[in-house]
Design a protein around this nucleic acid. Structure first.
Lengths: 259, 259
DNA sequence: CTTGACTATGCACGAAATTGCACGAATCCT
DNA sequence: AGGATTCGTGCAATTTCGTGCATAGTCAAG
């Protein structure tokens, strides 16, 4: 497989599509076909294949970002709300009165915040302004916000200031969100700074609880946060097959099924 | 006719509707159709579908947020939206490229954040998670969040940690929200901690600009932040009577009328 | 060198989707 | 109550999608 007559490798074409997607946040099939001088069928085929690989989200007329790296926060909220809600509710039930808990950013964590019992007296420490805003209406929970430079993609603060502020606090629990949970690859996320902040939070907590909605299980992202063995609990959406579950329990991790 | 090729994919349009909904707390079908240059039928169809998915609540003429939590926040924002929007927009125009500005909490300040020019390159430092969230969608503005204990009533952080973090930064401008602006009583607010944080922010800024929607003028709250003479500009909603204005200009303060 | 398998691309055609328009009904404002 | 706006549905025009098939080029084996 060498050359197509237009002098562009298939791989190059796909790379071009992804580049356009990254640069402009969208791809229009017809526009690409005109730019490259190829038929729309070819572009549509590429789009289908890229969608099958999960590299983009196919929509009528073209494609939009599907990767967590580019999808905007509002868009991600809809991905699988039921699962995230269930995981968030199950995790919220783990908080005991009087505890100080770290809550990570992310949509699942927002669900956790919303499902904290209305009469719970506890302190939530978070580096996510979204979590803080979500807890404004809670009558009894105290909120402590970790400052720092805002990483807009995840809506969390990062950087030296954040790490420093975290180092001054010790918490009972840390509810961690990740983008990948894999027995061997470990707990992973898509940004190095974010991973560092998560590690700092885990280091200052007696226990770490991972919030893992269904699509995260078995996935892996670019940056390792922690090996699976270093957390105490993973909250999952639905029961795993016995064989998959044992891969985690063998590492001393408790699996908590949300529903 | 080439509607579909006008650069707006259906999914993008829905995302836009949801973004407007989140930003402004409501969506008006006609307004969206004019903004996007599409027929109202199309927008109404989108609204129906989004409502069927439970992502918003359909009402006559447009839509409202589905989530009561969001509706609540939006409701507070709407107390006197026109005036606050006008003041926010006028204040946003004061920011020069490359500047570092403190932005206070409050609904007027949120309007400021929303009206920062989309191509403005600047750094916003804020102790309000609401401001941080409002700026997530801004493409070029850097956001630095001041951590601390969350004062839920105003949705800002306060306390020693906040004061300390503020002391490490110097800004060109500070956009301050207050609850009272009075020539003799000065600039006042309803909480002592909040007043202290505002003072700390003013101390670290070259200039302080007060955001004063109409109902604040001539009012006074319990805690003094600063005397009027110590700020450089007060942005007001509409022109004051000559005699009232001179009470401020005599103190060396510039009055900036929003509209 | 020839032949067969394979891939990539383009074209055709029916199916599906999207959009604007028309018209009557429902709803809102004055 | 009356006028105006908005809503919902049906319909037509256009675009886009998916599949099947033909063509061209490449690779590997004989």
């Amino acid at each position: 497989m060498q050359w197509c007559r237009c002098g562009m490798l298939t791989q190059e074409r796909k790379a071009h599509i992804l580049a356009v997607l990254q640069r402009e946040g969208r791809v229009v099939a017809k526009a690409v076909s005109q730019t490259l001088g190829l038929s729309e069928d070819t572009i549509r085929r590429d789009l289908r294949e890229l969608a099958a690989e999960g590299r983009l989200q196919r929509v009528h007329g073209g494609a939009l970002p599907a990767s967590p790296a580019l999808a905007d926060f509002a868009g991600r909220t809809k991905v699988s709300p039921e699962g995230k809600i269930a995981v968030g509710r199950a995790a919220a039930a783990l908080v005991r009165p009087g505890q100080v808990v770290f809550v990570d950013g992310g949509t699942t964590a927002v669900q956790l915040a919303r499902h904290l019992p209305p009469d719970l007296r506890a302190t939530v420490v978070t580096h996510s302004p979204s979590i803080a805003v979500a807890l404004v209406d809670h009558p009894t929970v105290e909120v402590e916000l970790i400052g720092g430079r805002l990483f807009k993609h995840s809506i969390v603060t990062t950087g030296a200031a954040a790490i420093e502020a975290i180092a001054r606090i010790r918490a009972d629990l840390f509810f961690m969100g990740v983008t990948g949970v894999h027995p061997e690859a470990g707990l992973t996320t898509g940004d190095a700074e974010e991973a560092a902040v998560k590690r700092a939070l885990a280091r200052q907590s007696a226990e770490t609880v991972v919030l893992a909605s269904a699509e995260k299980i078995g996935a892996a992202s670019r940056y390792l946060v922690l090996p699976v063995a270093e957390v105490s609990t993973i909250v999952i959406e639905s029961r795993l097959p016995q064989v998959a579950a044992s891969a985690y329990t063998a590492l001393g991790v408790r699996l908590l099924t949300a529903k």
